[in-house]
Amino acid sequence: MDTTVTTAVKEQPRTNGVGHDVKFSSKQVKVFYGEKEALHGVDIDLRDREVTALIGPSGCGKSTYLRCLNRMNDTIAGCRVTGTTTLDGKDIYDRSIDVVQLRAKVGMVFQKPNPFPKSIYENVAYGPRIHGIASSKQDFDAIVENSLVKAGLWTEVKDRLDQPGTGLSGGQQQRLCIARAIAVSPEVILMDEPCSALDPIATAKIEELIDELRENFAIVIVTHSMQQAARVSQMTAFFHLGHLVEFGQTKQIFTNPVDQRTQSYITGRIG
């Protein structure tokens, strides 16, 4: 199996012309579930204020890699990660790293919206409270409002903040989860198929939101929808059978991918 990653990034100008700093840098990241090696040495740099889409067929390792970035794999029994991943130059698997702090810095939004069985207000205020980010009622109010505004949900819920978050529609719940992730002032937001349980209108709202959030955060999104990857991301990484096959500018990946396996996947061919 060819393990060379095709990277067309270096030769080409960056999409947004800004050339932001590298946020996450992974070197030879491998993930084992027991004896089985699920991810075979991933080398990739993810930049700040850019949306990076991870695409590939089921079981290709994209979600496994995503979960390395906030050490969610730690919670899986028998899972072992080797290689290095740095966030702003610091090894996130270093012993000195507080995983709780790491996950506050690197927020996550899941496939299914999973609001806490609490009020809309409490869903957003919960993180800042346990992290001790705010203390006064005024501070909490400000954080809740600000987060909900950023998540594009404020106008829809401002008059019913005391009602349960679970009473919202699916798309609203997902935006509530995004507001909850934003509330603890993260630097990176990971999204694992955030729209796969949503209808097209709710999906469009989330995608719009992703584009706005890019101004302040690095975003890494796993998606099965290639159209979505093409719409929302600046960079795209294609995974296949546990290998990072190709990583490049989204516009290049979807018009003229270098690797034959990428070509086959994105054009819907038998690989």
Binding site: A230, F254, T255, N256, T262, I266, G268
Partner: peptide, 9 residues
Amino acid sequence: RQPMAVDLR
């Protein structure tokens, strides 16, 4: 079909 890459070209 929303073609991509080689198909789009």
